[in-house]
Amino acid sequence: MIKVEEILAEQFYQEVEQASGKVLIDFYAPWCAPCKMLAPVVEQIAQEHEDIKVIKINADNSQELMAEFGIRGIPTLLLMNKGELVATQVGAASVSQVTKFVQQ
């Protein structure tokens, strides 16, 4: 079973920028209602797309990383490929919307 891995900002460069393929990053906060709505969608994407590494980052603990990517609202999904930012999506989304997002 594929699971969504939660990482700290300090692990970002090792886990994301050195990844050899696509990485979906979910910036969230435990108090954020839209983030809670997006969580099962992200879990499903992780299960359906074994070729994509899926990680979560708590926005409350990652202000510098959020500033680096210009993230102003959560939930925000980043899609990276081989360490390069490919796309950004802000707000809650359906499984089909996130599927289209990761297939870019």
Rank of each mutant, 00 (worst) to 15 (best):
R72C: 02
L78V: 01
G73M: 13
Q47M: 01
I2D: 02
P30R: 05
V54S: 11
Q63M: 15
F12I: 14
I45T: 07
I71W: 00
H49N: 14
E48A: 09
A67I: 13
L77T: 01
F101M: 10
V23C: 06
Y28V: 15
V16A: 15
K100T: 08
Y28F: 15
E15G: 13
E5H: 08
I55H: 03
V23D: 05
F27C: 06
I45A: 06
A87T: 07
A9K: 14
V54I: 10
H49T: 12
Q97S: 04
E10W: 03
K56V: 12
G73C: 12
E15K: 15
A46P: 01
F69Y: 07
C35V: 13
G91E: 06
C35R: 11
P34Y: 04
Q97M: 05
C32F: 05
V98G: 08
E84G: 09
E5Q: 11
E84R: 12
V98H: 05
Q47W: 00
E6M: 06
P40D: 01
K22M: 08
P34S: 02
V41W: 07
L78N: 02
L77F: 02
Q89W: 09
E68M: 12
T99E: 12
L77S: 02
K53P: 11
S94M: 05
T99N: 11
S96G: 05
M80V: 08
E43F: 00
V98K: 10
L38C: 13
F12R: 06
F69I: 03
A9C: 11
N81H: 13
E48P: 10
G73S: 13
A19R: 09
T76H: 07
G73A: 14
I2T: 04
I55V: 14
P34Q: 02
E10A: 11
L65M: 14
